[in-house]
Design a protein around this nucleic acid. Structure first.
Lengths: 346, 346
DNA sequence: CTCGTAGAGTGTTACGTATAACGTGACCCC
DNA sequence: GGGGTCACGTTATACGTAACACTCTACGAG
């Protein structure tokens, strides 16, 4: 069994089946209907099976000039959010015969290094989160169709944008907290340069800043629980009247904020209402469970992939932001709502 | 500027620089030292820059028969753990000029569908988590070098295995809880067919089952917070004496278990000690913070990639499991430790 | 003066596939 | 019975690159 270690090619299959290489190609492509008889096709398939033939995809890609494979560029996978985006995008991709590979831009790797030494070999297009901006500079040179997720529609010339209606989410948060009676707000903002966080800040400013008697301060934290703990501690112990509501850009930040509040002896929500964004599993595991803006990550991924497929096929991509939903849970309450607890008002 | 829309090739660059295509190839490969003069090389590079030339990687891959790209197959990205694995593996890969793409096996997608329509075009090897077993069946046909993460060393013929020393972690948990005085244990096991979870169960049985007077029960839950809530509720309300310590296969399960305990009016750790595995961000965001077995995901990824590189280069891969660390936090205490709380013993 | 060697390149071929262009019988219809 | 489809294939070529096998000049050693 000194079989040659090199893999069989379509020519080998052709020889074994007694047909031409072209016929094998036709059978393994999918346009052999009316060109090759069913019996011949089956003979080819049998020979291929016998030899263990698998088409050489590098050769196919070279020949076709396209690959039916798409790259999804996301920031570091520190939460399950982008896992959901991937799942949704991959589902739509699979329905259209496309493959999807994921490129998480590594933390702390600068834009200088080429992130895709060779993987780029097989890409028809790219979907990229605006939070992974650094990795994108390396893609500028390739003129691949590009869909940007959560990115400034005006700021990405030549790219299609697909966005969550995060502005509506922040308006809902503002409305919810105002309705509960809060007036002193702290915005715990993600210290990440990304359009989606700019929108959150802008929207909060517009809908809390304009209210008579309302006050909005801002603190910044890196996008991690530990970072949020530190930033929230600093902000909550700052001089002046303490805020009664803490609006966080993200559930991770909210989790850190809750932890910091606990350490400072503040009760959530009696002394401090806290909100997040994302609705991670974390949000409902916390005590109290987190009021948050639920983002449908899978739908986000689906819409992103649909937009890219539209671009690839020359169709106009669908427009319209993806709706989000405010989920009210236990971490928000009227300010000073300790009454039902038994007079713990100092 | 009616430029031809097709991208420039090495031949175009050669023409523009007044050299042969072979010379361009030599310059863009990296073995032109002693074959092409520095001045000529610079002329080639200048022409390439002017034309916006980028090597066609599909052609290169076809010609070379290898790609310096590796695939990492992981289960659905429901926690940040595999993000860490990716980060570590990608770092090592980059140091060796390799690229790394990530393939999360989509939830609920059976093994029938080919998960890599075309991405497989450019793969030199595969690193796969044993938890993503389903996706692996589709890879059987390709005879790619394979490194398995957290997989039975005996059960994967032809594959190299890299494992966390999860057995030591479970022994540490058992020792910790026994030392605190616990004797009635419940193991909340992940209902996922994977070697790593089998090891946890086996190790717990060996080190808790053998103790005189000790009792170990087992409940199973899908690997999610919601699943754990339901399973823990059922197990904790079962007839018979309630366990005092709940050993969970994973932090997600532990988070769900804590939530279920709270809903049943049980306090953690006074009425029930809870432990997890992973040390996710979640673990330290919970109240109380979770005692857990910390797994170094990045190191795991690094070692996996190093093993694959060794296989690719014909070197023997390093052996030895990766150490883990028990992190004791607030979710474990001696059984019935409610004394300092003020006599809440019913 | 001849030989060997190193430097600086070039011509050609092969990687494995997909497809346009080209037969070739057979059948059918007027 | 001639021409027009059809059904079923084959031949030949191109995709863009890397590498083998050359050529040619210069130069120092023997």
């Amino acid at each position: 069994m000194a079989r040659n270690s090199t893999r069989p090619t379509s020519r080998d299959v052709a020889r074994a089946a007694g047909v031409s290489q072209a016929a094998v190609s036709l059978v393994f492509g999918d346009k052999w209907r009316g060109r090759v008889s069913e019996t011949t096709a089956e003979r080819v398939r049998a020979a291929a099976r016998r030899l263990g033939y698998r088409p050489n995809l590098a050769a196919r890609n070279l020949r076709l000039g396209r690959t039916r494979t798409v790259l999804l560029v996301v920031p570091a996978l520190t939460t399950e959010f982008f896992g959901g985006v991937y799942t949704g995008a991959a589902r739509v991709a699979a329905e259209h015969g496309f493959g999807l590979v994921l490129y998480p831009s590594p933390e702390g790797v600068g834009p200088a290094r080429d992130p895709f030494p060779s993987a780029r070999a097989a890409l028809d297009g790219v979907i990229a989160s605006s939070m992974a901006a650094e990795a994108l500079t390396a893609l500028r040179g390739d003129e691949l169709p590009l869909v940007m997720l959560d990115s400034d529609p005006q700021g990405s010339p030549g790219a299609t944008t697909v966005n969550l209606d995060i502005a509506a989410g922040m308006r809902a948060v503002a409305g919810h907290l105002l309705g509960l009676g809060h007036r002193r707000f702290l915005h715990l903002a993600a210290d990440v340069p990304s359009w989606t966080f700019e929108v959150r800040a802008r929207e909060l400013a517009a809908h809390l800043g304009g209210i008579p008697g309302a006050e909005l301060r801002t603190a910044r934290a890196p996008l991690s629980i530990e970072g949020a703990v530190a930033a929230a501690r600093t902000a909550l112990t700052a001089p002046g009247p303490r805020p009664t509501a803490l609006v966080c850009d993200d559930d991770l930040l909210a989790a850190g904020a809750c932890k910091a509040a606990r350490r400072l002896g503040l009760r959530v929500p009696e002394d401090l209402s806290v909100t997040g964004v994302d609705d991670l599993g974390l949000a409902s595991a916390l005590e109290p469970e987190l009021t948050t803006v639920r983002l449908d990550a899978e739908l986000f991924g689906e819409r992103g992939m649909q937009a890219l497929l539209a671009v690839l096929e020359g169709r106009p991509p669908a427009v319209g932001d993806i709706p989000v939903e405010l989920v009210v849970r236990g971490s928000t309450a009227p300010p000073g709502a300790a009454g039902n607890e038994g007079g713990h008002t100092p």
